[in-house]
Design a protein around this nucleic acid. Structure first.
Length: 778
RNA sequence: GCCCCUGUAGCCCAAUGGCAGAGGCAGACGACUUAAAAUCGUCCAAGUGUGGGUUCGACCCCCACCGGGGGCACCA
C-alpha cells in the first residue's frame, strides 16, 4: 500500500516496506519480472489543516513531504521502480478519478441524494459510514452527528453479493481476519419483508425480519424513534409532546450510552395500532431507540418470546409475551431469557407442528400470495458517500445548470483542475472552500451554454486509492487511465502488503472498483489483490508510538545509529510479519553484529572467483544447499524471520569451516559465502553488495540470480531413525533415507538395545514410520 | 455478550502428529589485549497457560477453563 505523505517515514513504514522489498527482491533474484511500484496517496485533510495553520497552499506541504519520504525510501534501499511514481494530487492522476466518476455516473453507479449523513463537526465535512468508528470520526475522534444533506454516493450496494461471493477466491490467500471483517461489514442477512396494515394510515408499514416463523408471536411493533415514520405516526395521535420529549432525550444521550447493550430499554407508545397480517391481531406501535433508523426499514415486528431485545422491552413496558416456538426451554416471560433456538411452532394456527425453517418458509409463501410479504435479503452495507466539503481533493466533474440540472463535464474538458488555494479561505465552515472561488465555480453549461456552477465538493480520498494499482501499469499513458495490455501483463497484484487498518475501507472499495470496471469492460479480472499480507504494527513498550506518549522512536535516528541494513534486518527478523513488533524487544545492535559477522566471511574467502564448488567440502556444501532450500521455502511462505535464522546458521557453519575446518581456501567456503551474500541481498542490500565485491564479483548482486539448489546435496545420505518402546526413546540408528517400513522394523528388532529392553516381552504392535522412527508397543 | 487469533527458557521467537530448540537478545565463563572495546569460543536455562480427551505417540488435533490481543456489538 502506498503511503500518505505526512512528514517523514516512521517505524511502521520501515517494517512494511522492508517486508515488501524482501518479497520483491526475492522474485527478482529468482528471475521474474517484478513490478514494485510506489506513489503517494497525496490528497487529504492533514495537508489542508497544515495549510490553514501555515497560511499556505496544501500543495507546498504535500510535495515537501513527498520529497522527504522519497529520499528516505531511497536511503532505506527500497527497490521501487522510480520511473513509475504517481501522486494522487497531480492533475495527471486525478483527471482519471474524474473520468471514472463520469463512467460510474453514466451507469448509474454515481448518484446524488438527499439524506441524513454522518457529519464530523470538527472536520466540518461528511463521512462515509466506514469512517465512523463507534460513533466517532475515525480521523479526529470527534462525536459524529447526523445532518440532512444532498451528497454524492457510489452505489457499492449493487455489488454487495459479488463482494461477498468473490471472497471465495481470496480464501487462504488473504488473512481470514480481513475476510471476516469484510463479511461482517457487508452484513448480509436472509429473511423476509412483511407488510403490516396500520389503522388510520393508507399505507402499510413494511418490516424486515429474519424470523418470519415467529410472526404469530409478534405482540407489538417498534419503529426507530429518529425516523421520519415515527414522527409521522406520532402526529395527530395525541402524544406529540411526549414523543418530542423522548426524541430529544435520545438525541442528547451520548453515543457511548446509546451503544451500551446492557442499558435499560426506553420508548414511547405512539397510540397507534398495526394489524398482524397472519392473524389480524391488533398490536400497539411503539417508538424506541433500540431500533435503528438506517437498518432494514427502520421498523420491526417485536417477538418478545424469541428475541432478547424485544423481551427486555416488553418486560420494561409491560407488554404481552407469547411463545410460538416450542424449544423445550423455560417460559421466557418468567425467566426473562428469550428462546431463540430451534423447535416446533405452536400457537400459530395451521402452522403448528412445523419446524422453524419450514414454518417460516410456509408463512412467507402464504403471505406472498396476498402480496403481504416477500423473501428477501438485507445488508448492513450502505452506499458509499464520496463527496467532501473540503478543498484538497478531486473536484467532482459535474456542472449544475438551472435549466439542464446535473451536467457531466465533457471528457475532453478533463481534468477539472483545483484552483490555486492562495486566494481561498480553507477554514472548514461546512461548505466547500471551492464555493468561494468565483472564477472557478462560474462556468457555462456544456449543454445549453447558460451560466452555471461547478459542483464544489471534492471526492473522498479513498476514491484515489481505489484504483491506483491500475495506474501503476500505465503511468505515462495520457489518453486513458490505464492500458489494458499493460494491465493484463502485470495485474492482478500477486502480492499486496499493508496494515490491517485498511481491512474494510480501502480493500473493500478497491474490490468494488475492480468489479465495476470489469463490468464496463476495462478489466479482465474481478479481484485486484490475489494475495494479501498484513504486517503488524511497530510498538514501544506495548503501545503505539506517539509523540504525546513520549515513546516515539524515530526511524531517522535508528538509521543513523545502526545503519539501514541493520534496521531492515531487525524488522524482518523480529518475528512473523503479521505479529506486532515491540521495539523494546528488538536489538538493532545485534543485527549490526550479525551483518559484520557475515561480511567477515566474505573477507576470509581466499579461493578465486569461479572455482568449481564440487571440489570443495561436501559437508559444507550440504549445509549450504539445505540452507538455500530452507531459505527459499521460508521466504515464499512469508516466514522471513525463519529465513534470516537459516542464513545465520549458514554463517555460523561457514565460520566454523574457515576457522577450524577446511579453511578459507576451500571451494565450498566460497560457495557458502556467495550464498550468504545473495540471501542477504534481500534484506541487507548494502552489506550484500559489499560482500559481493569483496568476493571478486562486479555489481550488482541484486541481479546475480538465486543460486541453483542441488537436490542431491539437500537430501541427506543418512538420516537418524528413532527407536522407541511404548513411545519412549531407547536408541537411535543411522539409516538410508529411502529405507522401507519393513526394513526399518527389522533393524529395530535386531537392535541390541531394543532386544535387551524387550527381553522376550509380548509385542502388541509395531509402528514403523520410515525413515524416522519405529515404535514398539508391548 | 458473540466471533477470531494467541500462550514454548529471563526476553523475542523455531519445531509435515514422531529426539521440545533452529536463530537471536540478555546473562555467565574463557581466549585475545597492558586494559577495554571488538572478535572468537564454551556454557546457562523451559518440558510447551490449566484440566480432560483422541492417538502407539500431542507444542501440534478435539472439549472446557484461565491469561493476553483483536474484531463485532440493540443489524431485527
Amino acid at each position: 500500500m502506498f503511503p500518505y505523505p505526512s512528514g517523514d517515514l516512521h517505524m511502521g513504514h520501515a517494517e512494511a516496506y522492508a517486508l515488501g522489498d524482501v518479497i520483491a527482491r526475492y522474485w527478482v533474484q529468482r528471475g521474474f519480472n517484478v513490478l514494485h511500484p510506489i506513489g503517494w496517496d497525496a490528497f487529504g485533510l492533514p495537508a489542508e489543516n497544515a495549510a490553514i495553520k501555515r497560511n499556505s497552499d496544501p500543495r507546498e506541504w504535500t510535495y515537501e513531504n513527498i520529497a522527504t519520504q522519497r529520499a528516505s525510501m531511497r536511503r532505506y534501499a527500497c527497490s521501487f521502480d522510480w520511473e513509475r511514481i504517481l501522486n494522487t494530487c497531480d492533475p495527471e492522476y486525478y483527471r482519471w478519478n474524474q473520468w471514472i466518476f463520469l463512467k460510474f455516473y453514466e451507469r448509474g453507479l454515481a448518484y446524488r441524494k438527499d439524506s441524513p449523513v454522518n457529519w464530523c463537526p470538527d472536520c466540518q465535512t461528511v463521512l462515509a459510514n466506514e469512517q465512523v468508528v463507534a460513533g466517532l470520526c475515525e480521523r479526529c475522534d470527534t462525536q459524529v452527528t447526523k445532518k440532512k444533506l444532498t451528497q454524492w454516493y457510489f452505489k457499492i450496494t449493487d455489488y454487495a453479493d459479488r463482494l461477498l461471493d468473490d471472497m471465495e477466491q481470496l480464501e487462504g490467500k488473504w488473512p481470514e481476519k480481513v475476510l471476516t471483517m469484510q463479511r461482517n461489514w457487508i452484513g448480509k442477512s436472509t429473511g423476509a419483508k412483511v407488510d403490516f396494515a396500520v389503522e388510520g394510515r393508507s399505507k402499510p408499514i413494511t418490516i424486515f425480519t429474519t424470523r418470519p416463523d415467529t410472526l404469530f408471536g409478534a405482540t407489538f411493533m417498534v419503529v426507530a424513534v429518529d425516523s421520519e415514520l415515527a414522527r409521522e405516526l406520532a402526529n395527530g395521535s395525541g402524544v406529540e409532546a411526549d414523543f418530542e420529549k423522548y426524541l430529544e432525550s435520545v438525541r442528547s444521550a451520548s453515543e457511548i450510552d446509546r451503544l451500551s447493550t446492557d442499558r435499560k430499554k426506553s420508548g414511547i407508545f405512539l397510540n397507534r395500532y398495526a394489524i398482524n397480517p397472519v392473524n389480524g391481531e391488533r398490536i400497539p406501535i411503539w417508538a424506541s431507540d433500540y431500533v435503528l433508523a438506517d437498518y432494514g426499514t427502520g421498523a420491526i415486528m417485536a417477538v418478545p418470546a424469541h428475541d432478547q431485545r424485544d423481551l427486555d422491552f416488553a418486560r420494561a413496558m409491560g407488554l404481552t409475551v407469547r411463545v410460538v416456538v416450542d424449544t423445550e426451554e423455560e417460559d421466557p416471560a418468567a425467566t426473562g431469557i428469550a428462546t431463540d433456538g430451534n423447535g416446533l411452532l405452536i400457537n400459530s394456527d395451521g402452522y403448528d407442528g412445523l419446524d422453524v425453517k419450514a414454518g417460516g418458509e410456509q408463512i412467507v409463501a402464504d403471505l406472498a400470495k396476498k402480496s403481504l410479504a416477500s423473501a428477501t435479503e438485507n445488508y448492513r452495507l450502505r452506499d458509499w458517500l464520496i463527496s467532501r466539503q473540503r478543498f484538497w481533493g478531486t473536484p467532482i466533474p459535474i456542472i449544475h445548470c438551472q435549466k439542464c440540472g446535473e451536467v457531466p463535464v465533457p471528457e475532453d474538458q478533463l481534468p477539472v483542475r483545483l484552483p490555486t488555494a492562495k486566494d481561498l479561505d480553507l477554514k472548514p465552515k461546512g461548505v466547500s472552500p471551492l464555493a468561494t472561488a468565483d472564477e472557478w465555480v462560474n462556468v457555462d453549461c456544456p449543454k445549453c451554454g447558460a451560466r452555471a456552477k461547478r459542483d464544489t465538493d471534492t471526492m473522498d480520498t479513498f476514491v484515489d486509492s481505489s484504483w491506483y494499482f491500475l495506474r501503476f501499469t500505465s503511468v505515462n499513458v495520457n489518453d486513458k487511465p490505464f492500458d489494458l495490455q499493460q494491465v493484463k501483463t502485470w495485474l492482478p497484484v500477486d502480492q499486496y502488503v499493508g496494515g490491517v487498518t485498511h481491512a474494510i475501507l480501502h480493500l473493500l472499495y478497491s474490490r468494488f472498483f475492480t468489479k465495476a470496471l470489469f463490468d464496463m469492460g476495462y478489466l479482465d479480472f474481478t479481484e485486484p489483490f490475489t494475495r494479501l499480507l498484513n504486517q503488524g504494527m511497530v510498538l514501544m513498550d506495548g503501545s503505539a508510538m506517539s509523540k504525546s506518549r513520549g515513546n516515539l522512536v524515530r526511524l531517522s535516528d535508528e538509521l543513523a545509529h545502526h545503519g539501514v541494513d541493520a534496521i531492515r534486518l531487525s524488522m524482518v527478523f523480529a518475528g512473523p510479519p503479521e505479529d506486532d513488533i515491540d521495539w523494546k524487544d528488538v536489538s538493532p545492535s545485534g543485527s549490526v553484529k550479525f551483518l559484520s559477522r557475515a561480511w567477515r566471511i566474505a573477507k576470509d574467502v581466499t579461493s578465486p572467483v569461479g572455482i568449481d564448488p564440487s571440489q570443495g567440502s561436501i559437508d559444507l556444501r550440504k549445509v549450504t544447499h539445505k540452507a538455500l532450500a530452507d531459505i527459499s521455502f521460508a521466504v515464499e511462505s512469508f516466514r522471513f524471520n525463519v529465513a534470516v535464522a537459516r542464513v545465520m546458521e549458514l554463517v555460523n557453519a561457514t565460520r566454523k569451516a574457515i576457522d577450524t575446518g577446511v579453511g578459507g581456501g576451500d571451494a565450498a567456503v566460497r560457495e557458502a559465502a556467495e550464498a550468504v551474500a545473495i540471501a542477504l541481498s534481500l534484506v541487507a542490500p548494502y552489506t550484500a553488495e559489499e560482500m559481493w565485491e569483496i568476493l571478486g564479483h562486479s555489481p550488482s548482486i541484486a541481479r546475480a540470480g538465486w543460486p541453483a539448489i542441488d537436490p542431491d546435496l539437500v537430501s541427506a545420505e543418512k538420516v537418524i531413525a528413532i527407536l522407541q518402546i511404548n513411545g519412549k526413546i531407547k536408541d537411535r540408528i543411522e539409516v538410508a533415507p529411502d529405507i522401507s517400513d519393513q526394513e526399518l522394523e527389522k533393524l529395530a528388532l535386531q537392535n541390541p538395545q531394543i532386544a535387551a529392553e524387550l527381553n522376550g516381552a509380548d509385542i502388541k504392535k509395531i509402528i514403523s514410520r520410515a525413515p524416522k522412527l519405529v515404535n514398539i508397543v508391548i
